[in-house]
Simulated scan of single mutants.
Amino acid sequence: MRYVTYESPEGRGRRVGYLDGDAVVDAGFDGDMVAFIEAGAPVGTTRGVANAVLRAPLRPRTLRDFLAFEGHLLNVFPALGKAIPEEWYRLPAYYKGLPDTVIGPEDEIPWPAYTQRLDHELELAAVIGRPGKDITEDNALDHVFGYTIWNDLSARDVQAGELPVGMGPGKAKDWDGSNVLGPCIVTADEVDPHDIELEVRVNGERWGGANTRDMHHTFESMIVYASQALMLRPGEVLGSGTATGGSGVELGRWLAPADTVEMEASGIGVLRNVVGHRPA
């Protein structure tokens, strides 16, 4: 099942639905996506919705972003004169993002005034569906409701200044609309997280991509690590980190105003957005 959050001309606010082909069907649930997931995805009386507009599929409880693709680091670290830390191979470390200001498919990507080098990051994200604490690797994926695409935007010039401090990322990733999710959440029974093709295109040109089979840290290991002494709850989101070739910094290329960014994941769909204007 491909679940979505949508709005329609009917004016009933944001509603939970699912996709039947390209058509949106209301799921007959009064509540947001996180409540829907927490309730066990109880689809009620359904109805087709004309002229529905997809929004971010959920406002996550939390956003945790990992670094799972060694290829991405190999593309970036040498240019910085650094080697990949040995600790990275042992620990699926993460940072937390902004869950309250996520945007969704076709929303304009806002350009913060303090950066000249805006960059995209192609990621796969897992949405927690069942609570758990001290989860074991054997049953980690049983706690996943589904998967979506995550465009984790970065202000690369700001990031270069923050990294030496050893904190963050801070303002390099911290502005309204810096996290894009969508276009839907595909339930875990429909995709294999170990074999999903990921690709990013800018203005129709392929800039990069990878398969999740190349992840050094799996979603199982991420869930195990994050759940140590901590209850993970429905609606929390864990990101894979940038797929190999999934960012402009790996190519020395940057986004420009009016660029169309398309991120595609096999079995999930395409997350499409246009970059907004750069403030003077």
Results as ranks from 00 to 15, higher is better:
Arg278Glu: 10
Val49Thr: 11
Glu7Ala: 06
Ala23Val: 14
Tyr147Val: 07
Pro57Ile: 03
Trp150Met: 15
Met263Val: 07
Tyr94Trp: 13
Asp32Ala: 08
Pro42Thr: 15
Lys171Phe: 04
Leu122Asp: 00
Pro112Tyr: 03
Trp207Glu: 01
Gly204Asn: 08
Val274Pro: 00
Val25Asp: 01
Ile109Glu: 04
Glu250Gly: 07
Asp119Asn: 11
Ile109His: 02
Val43Gly: 03
Met222Asn: 10
Tyr114Val: 01
Asn75Ser: 12
Pro99Tyr: 09
Ile149Met: 02
Arg12Ile: 10
Trp207Asn: 06
Arg272Ala: 06
Asp119Tyr: 00
Glu205Tyr: 11
Trp150Gly: 03
Met167Val: 14
Gln228Lys: 15
Trp88Thr: 01
Gly48Pro: 09
Ala83Asp: 14
Asp100Val: 13
Asp107Ser: 08
Gly246Trp: 11
Trp175Ser: 03
Asp176Val: 14
Gly81Val: 14
Gly246Val: 11
Leu232Arg: 06
Ala50Asn: 09
Leu74Gly: 02
Glu86Gly: 03
Val200Phe: 07
Gly31Asn: 09
Gly177Lys: 08
Ser227Thr: 00
Pro112Gly: 02
Gly204His: 13
Asp22Gly: 08
Tyr94Gly: 00
Thr136Leu: 14
Asp189Lys: 09
Glu7Val: 12
Met1Arg: 11
Phe219Ala: 07
Met231His: 05
Leu80Ser: 08
